[in-house]
Simulated assay, not measured.
Amino acid sequence: MKKIGITGQNGFVGGHLYNTLGLFPDEFERIDFQKEYFEDESKIDDFVSKCDVIVHLAAMNRHDSQEVIYNTNINLTQKLINALKRTNSKAHILISSSTQEERDNLYGKSKRESREAIVNWANENGGKVTGLIIPNVFGAFGKPFYNSFIATFCYQLTNGEIPSIDIDGEVKLIYVQELVLNIIAEIRSELGQPELWVEATVSKKVSEVLALLNNFKTKYLNGGEIPVLKDQFEHNLFNTYRSYINYKEHYPVKFTQHTDPRGAFVEVIRLGIGGQCSFSTTVSDITRGNHYHTRKIERFAVIKGKALIQLRKIDTDEILDFYLDGTEPAYVDIPIWYTHNIKNIGDEDLYTIFWIDEPFNPEDSDTYFFEV
């Protein structure tokens, strides 16, 4: 079992990598890292000495001063190198750099020089290094106004703001989970490559991305409709957009009921894509679920009985409680990386309709059991 540590563990890419490594408990042991370790030689030395592999992601991306960015990134890398030397570490170091290495700015210079410094350490001390040169990364839970323009647009569109485009350039992009799988593949390979250019998986104009996000806002956020998703990029972008919705305020969403002397009619879901629709009955005081997904889009619709739906992002302690009653049918959509369950809190059987965007495949279920 490889012992993996991640500097920047609580950052955008670091958080996704940390959580994904947790899906392979028989292969990887995660060694926790906190940013305070950089200020305490004994703690960073202890961390380094425990690791077979260190993924160095800790860095500053944005600041009003380019000099602050440069100095911060160089200093963080140097502190890691000092710890590697003090502990005589032979760990495999994977360091994230950026395609901005090619640009004439201090951020790109800081990333290139940091990568080169790690390579020099490896050459002089018998270590191993993989220098990951990474294009623009987007995905769920990115920090707006910091990690990417997509994070900013998603935040603005889910908070009643209107995004603007400064330069409508063509941007090479990679989804964070695609990047994470690249990193894990390099960890498994054990090869080490001082300069490894990670391929972008798509290239889009900024205006194309914004048009898709505006469509998600109109169709999904405002209308409850699952929009047409033409390819994997649009699927990933949609899951990214969904992660910025304020679930506390938005859900549960009540259905529109059409009633007449015969009874009532409710449209449960309008789809631009396919998937699998099913229903369940649940007896009183029974809980279903307690699992999460990393890619699936899912809707829980309560049509009869009383239910408590609970959500919790797997790396937080906050539990979101949603109470639904079949007398006013409503739904809650389940975001990726949130473990979730549904409990019958009434006296009668609970009737729930479930829709998910892909048929269940036991060979690739994307279902990971974890208590809310």
Score class of each variant (00 low, 15 high):
13 V>N: 02
23 L>C: 02
39 E>S: 11
52 D>S: 09
56 H>E: 09
62 R>D: 05
72 T>R: 08
75 N>D: 15
75 N>Q: 15
79 K>L: 13
79 K>E: 10
82 N>G: 10
86 R>Q: 01
89 S>N: 11
91 A>D: 01
99 T>I: 14
101 E>R: 12
108 G>Q: 03
118 I>V: 15
124 E>H: 02
131 G>N: 07
132 L>C: 12
140 A>C: 13
141 F>A: 07
151 A>Q: 01
156 Q>L: 12
158 T>H: 05
171 V>H: 07
181 L>R: 13
185 A>C: 09
186 E>N: 10
187 I>S: 02
187 I>K: 04
190 E>I: 00
194 P>C: 09
197 W>R: 15
200 A>I: 00
207 S>M: 08
210 L>I: 09
213 L>S: 13
213 L>V: 09
216 F>G: 10
220 Y>G: 11
223 G>M: 09
225 E>R: 13
241 Y>T: 07
243 S>Y: 04
246 N>I: 04
246 N>E: 12
254 K>L: 11
260 D>F: 11
267 E>C: 06
272 G>L: 03
275 G>A: 07
285 D>A: 15
286 I>Y: 03
287 T>F: 00
300 F>W: 12
303 I>M: 03
313 K>F: 05
320 L>G: 04
322 F>C: 01
323 Y>F: 14
338 Y>A: 01
340 H>E: 03
341 N>V: 04
342 I>A: 11
348 E>D: 15
349 D>A: 14
350 L>Y: 04
359 P>N: 05
361 N>F: 08
363 E>C: 04
369 F>E: 08
370 F>L: 15
